[in-house]
Design a protein around this nucleic acid. Structure first.
Length: 268
DNA sequence: AAAACACCCTGCCTGC
DNA sequence: TGCAGGCAGGGTGTTT
């Protein structure tokens, strides 16, 4: 999302901002006043990613900065479209650009998050996040963290305070690639930390090369689907043959979420 | 400390 | 064709 959004909007001025006023995550109403205060009249100077958050930095006319934060949740989308194009259903925030285009956040399920503050440090959501797997994680750090947890490996990897940015799909994929069972207590995976680290990075890098994974909702800011869903090892493949050993892929549910794995290739 | 579950919300797909 | 049930890439809060 960031890779397609950045070249479209950096350097452009935010003329005005509109919100639906509807509540997003946890019933929290959109803070329209803050979203305006930290963007309107300013120039977008950077679009970045921190874990699963899209971070947009704006240089304001009074010389100060503003930082807007977007989490797409399950069904959130960011699109850049001309203002006269029909807006997507369930649009909740629009940054109107001076050149006649608009950045539109839509989110049917409203599990997403959009907020703004003075800077990144003022967003408490970001403070509790662990290292990013592609830039700040090392095999040594992962090994040390694994050693401190008895939780099932899958729960450990989904915990954003341990490692930030892995979701259900990529956790399933990384566990398959490294041959680790989702129920394995985290501390018992410590000897395999290097393999797990490599699997996590490989999974994310390949997904990025393929433009993301589109199962239902994901499209980038230009409206293109990802292609990585065609390269998944186990996710969504219940009953289909394992790509390594042909054993049917298993699905189990824990904590209300599906886990896909191969009971032959992934040892406890 | 950690697991299990409910919950926020809409859309889509399946089976009856 | 309609309806009910199940499912969904996330995160938080409560209970066990």
């Amino acid at each position: 999302m960031v890779r397609t959004l950045r070249p479209q909007v950096v350097g452009h001025e935010v003329q005005s901002l509109w919100t639906s006023g509807k509540a997003l995550r946890l019933g929290r109403p959109l803070d329209t006043a803050a979203l305006k205060k930290f963007a309107v009249g300013g120039r977008i100077v950077a679009v970045r990613r921190r874990a699963k958050y899209v971070v947009m930095d704006v240089a304001l006319p009074d010389g100060t900065m503003g930082t807007s934060l977007v989490h797409l949740g399950m069904s959130g989308r960011l699109r850049v479209q001309p203002k006269d194009q029909e807006r997507p259903a369930h649009t909740h925030v629009i940054w109107v650009l001076k050149d006649g285009r608009e950045i539109r956040f839509s989110d049917p399920r409203r599990f997403g998050l959009v907020k703004a503050a003075r800077d990144e440090a003022a967003h408490e959501e970001l403070a509790a996040l662990g290292p990013d797997p592609l830039s700040d994680l090392s095999a040594a750090y992962l090994e040390a963290e694994l050693a401190t947890s008895r939780a099932p490996l899958k729960a450990f990897l989904l915990d954003q305070s341990r490692i930030a940015g892995l979701g259900n799909i990529y956790v399933c994929e990384a566990m398959f690639i490294s041959g680790l069972h989702p129920a394995l207590p985290a501390h018992r995976a410590k000897e395999r930390a290097a393999a797990l680290f490599e699997a996590i990075q490989q999974t994310l890098r390949e997904a990025l090369v393929h433009g993301g994974t589109t199962l239902r909702d994901f499209i980038d800011s230009e409206g293109h689907s990802g292609q990585h869903q065609h390269s998944l090892w186990v996710y969504g493949r219940e009953g289909d043959p394992c790509h390594k050993c042909q054993t049917p892929v298993k699905r189990k549910v824990d904590g209300g979420r599906s886990t896909f794995f191969c009971r032959v290739c992934q040892k406890r």
